[in-house]
């Protein structure tokens, strides 16, 4: 699937995906709206414009670009984008986090939800997984790309840095990791909780091809993600430092760690949906 959506159409889909996120989290009064809203533009661009992928899901994905969500708590936006790009019926979004659902709190392969290739939620594991998938693509001479998404708080996990060391050393150059740099985590700002320092300098020093991107501007997200096809297969893995606002698109949720993992009440939902107007349909 790779359709010729315009930037304006992609903006509309991202707004609809944000509506899905707040409605899903409201529906079960549980989940993580902040990071989900911040990453809506990125995931929409990836699934509707950038990746070569087939919603007729096949685990091995041979000949397809693959995506791994390492910060699994932003499952609402992942599920919305998967459903709206054709992996499963959008009506299933209403089952999010409810008993007997395939849409578990954190994504899993265990319930057989199409589009999910790896369980995530326990942080720091997805970069290793993405490198592994990239290694098999290289072994099988499959020239498609592997994408992954990570939270910035997640970089506090040690496994990330094992993987950060490995990928450039072994020239894994069919890999594009993106870090959602929203500067927030559960207990406060990343600066307060455990400063990440100069991320650009760190990833460059490890040997990655580093790109900076405003993740909440579709006009910038699309061409930046398109550019990775040119930068791939040149001996270095690619790291996109994606600046976003946690909660982007809903004014009262924007920029605060307080909306990392709580659900809006009825009144807050009403306000949020009023700010997220589209000509698409809700589930």
């Amino acid at each position: 699937m790779k359709k010729e959506y315009s930037i304006e159409q992609l903006k509309g889909i991202a707004t609809q995906a944000r509506r899905d996120v707040v409605r899903m989290v409201h529906g079960c009064q549980s989940g993580h709206p902040g990071g989900s809203l911040g990453c809506a533009d990125f995931l929409t661009a990836l699934y509707f414009k950038i990746m070569n992928h087939n919603p007729e899901f096949n685990m091995d994905g041979i000949g397809e670009d693959l995506f791994f969500l390492s910060n699994g708590h932003i499952s609402p936006i992942f599920y919305s984008v998967l459903a709206r790009s054709g992996y499963f019926d959008i009506e299933e979004l209403k089952t999010f986090r409810k008993l007997n659902s395939r849409l578990q709190g954190h994504p899993t392969t265990h319930e057989g939800l199409p589009g999910v290739r790896m369980s995530s939620g326990s942080l720091g594991q997805g970069l290793s997984v993405a490198i592994g998938a990239a290694l098999t693509k290289r072994l099988k001479k499959d020239n498609s790309l592997v994408f992954s998404l990570h939270g910035d708080g997640e970089l506090q996990e040690g496994q990330i840095w094992e993987a950060a060391l490995f990928a450039p050393a072994k020239k894994i150059d069919n890999l594009v990791m993106t870090i959602d740099v929203n500067g927030q985590q559960i207990d406060g700002s990343t600066e307060q909780v455990l400063s990440l320092g100069d991320l650009e300098a760190k990833w460059k020093a490890f040997g990655w091809d580093v790109i900076n991107m405003n993740g909440n501007d579709m006009e910038e997200v699309v061409p930046t993600l398109q550019s990775v096809r040119e930068r791939a297969f040149k001996g270095k893995p690619i790291c996109i430092l994606m600046k976003t606002n946690m909660g982007h698109g809903v004014s009262f949720m924007t920029g605060s760690h307080k909306w990392h993992g709580i659900a809006p009440n009825d009144e807050q939902l009403h306000v949020a949906l009023n700010e997220l107007q589209t000509n698409l349909n809700d589930y």
């Binding site: 041979i62 790896m118 290793s128 490198i131 998938a133 072994l139 099988k140």
Partner: peptide
């Protein structure tokens, strides 16, 4: 030799990479 991956002293990364490598049939 092309089917062997030396991971260095990084077992967590090794397990994650092994999991990822299964996707695609390894």
């Amino acid at each position: 030799p092309e089917r062997f991956i030396q991971t260095g002293i990084a077992e967590a990364n090794m397990m994650g990479m092994a999991a990822g490598m299964t996707i695609g049939g390894a």
